[in-house]
């Protein structure tokens, strides 16, 4: 086992630097699916989260509880739901999206949105009320207020995005159900690791694991740099 571990690390570098076509395909699919999902999740989650954080309305408590539940939603169940929606006999079957990267993006997106909404909401709620009022009394519109508050709680919000991204790229249950782990097409790190482990190809599985960790590290590094940067 120990040998296989070392062998895996060596293989990881060999595959990377010999520009192994299949490996690079897996890298591109994984990164593309997860970054697209997170990007869309940010576009939807930031405004919704800041709106929830700013406003008080009836049913906010219930909505918050619901949101918290979805933050811990089991990915496999999410995969199952999307599978049923997109399968040929399902309501969205005619779109023919099952076993495509679009379906995988959809699954990761739905898993990431509650996390981004939840952290944005919490960050904005815990902000200094003095700052909020100062911005309002300056004469800003609601959109300008939201944007300033998001910038103000940048650190906590980026932390939320990091969590969401980490979950998305390392997620396996949902993408294997809706993506189908098709070679050259919908195969990602996690699904490839599952496959290789089942086939006893531990070296390859470890190599993929090492690269996945490396990529996650680099992306985290970039986001952390933005997070701690003072302008």
């Amino acid at each position: 086992m120990e040998n296989e571990f070392l062998d895996g690390i060596v293989r990881a570098f060999v595959l990377l630097f010999t520009f192994d076509a299949e490996l690079w395909n897996i890298i591109l699919v994984s990164v593309r699916v997860s970054t697209t999902a997170i990007f869309i999740a940010i576009l939807i989650g930031l405004p919704l989260g800041s709106y929830l954080g700013l406003k008080n309305f009836k049913g906010k408590k219930f909505l918050t509880n619901l949101l918290n539940t979805f933050m811990g939603f089991p990915p496999v169940v999410m995969g199952l739901i999307i599978f049923m929606l997109l399968s040929r006999s399902g309501p969205l079957g005619s779109l023919g999206l099952l076993y495509s990267t679009t379906a995988m993006i959809l699954a990761q997106l739905l898993l990431a949105i509650p996390i981004i909404i939840g952290t944005t909401k919490a960050a904005i709620e815990s902000g200094d009320p003095n700052i909020k009022e100062t911005i309002i009394s300056m004469g800003s519109t609601e959109t300008q207020l939201c944007w300033e508050l998001i910038k103000d709680s940048k650190r906590s919000i980026i932390a939320g995005i990091l969590v969401a991204f980490g979950q998305a790229i390392s997620e396996v249950g949902a993408v294997i159900i809706v993506g189908g782990n098709i070679r050259w097409n919908t195969r990602t790190f996690t699904t490839a690791i599952v496959l290789n482990t089942r086939m006893g190809e531990f070296g390859m599985a470890i190599a993929l694991g090492v690269i996945l960790i490396g990529i996650t590290f680099i992306l985290n590094y970039i986001l952390t740099h933005i997070q701690t940067k003072r302008d």
């Binding site: 009022e133 300033e148 910038k151 103000d152």
Partner: peptide, 9 residues
């Protein structure tokens, strides 16, 4: 206001 605050910029 009584308590002066600045934005994070």
């Amino acid at each position: 206001r009584q308590k002066p605050v600045v934005l994070n910029t």
